[in-house]
Design a protein around this nucleic acid. Sequence first.
DNA 1: AACCGTACTTACCCGAGGGTGAGTACCCCA
DNA 2: TGGGGTACTCACCCTCGGGTAAGTACGGTT
Lengths: 118, 118
Amino acid sequence: MAASARRGPYFCGIDAAMDVVSGKWKPLILWELHDHGIRRFAELRRGLPGVSEKMLVQHLREMEEDGLVRREVYPEVPPKVEYSLTEHGVSLNAALTSLGEWGTERMRRIGAEKVSVG
Amino acid sequence: MAASARRGPYFCGIDAAMDVVSGKWKPLILWELHDHGIRRFAELRRGLPGVSEKMLVQHLREMEEDGLVRREVYPEVPPKVEYSLTEHGVSLNAALTSLGEWGTERMRRIGAEKVSVG
DNA sequence: AACCGTACTTACCCGAGGGTGAGTACCCCA
DNA sequence: TGGGGTACTCACCCTCGGGTAAGTACGGTT
């Protein structure tokens, strides 16, 4: 508890949306889940080069709380947990596409590099 | 110097766009300038309830560096500085509208309050 | 018996982002 | 003469987001 002071009050819609997406890895998680449909914890970890397990768990939990991500646990002996997007997660992703295009255009403009997976 | 480690490398376009918008007041500044066209420093300060002068200057400078904001100084005796959006600022604002709509919808869903201007 | 892989939790630490409050130079107005 | 308005700068402080590293319970592999 005392985890987050989220859920407003907000200045505007942008503010409310940013609250949910702010976090170093959240847009990437969103994209990864949108791209693959369903991902297990370790798959996500491998898909986000550089993320720590702590942050991945933490972000996933917050996104679950915010209704963006669905978490399904299989009570098997080697643990198995599957993550996927809810309809709200999907629609958020859609709302982010134009921003993504703007960012891509900006990267082109300023000649920024992409992070390499190494 | 040593001001910002911005300008990538980025994971993706979202990342590049978020870099430019991340900052407590930046989306609000963007909106305020889009809404009024041209604003002076003190007008912006009054338009963003709660912002400190330090943060306002700092954000405006970064947004100027990032090519979002145009800063015009009039060498008058009571200082006069006018801020407005560049074409990149305008297009970023446009790219943010769908996100803003998503956020507004989310506020409605969770029943979040708006910040009151007092 | 030792080690890897699953999906985490816990404790600790650091730097940056942001807030507070003061100072600056000049003018206008009461 | 003093207070308010213009647009800032500077120094200090403090929270918190994020990183590192270790521990956990269980089984399959070598």
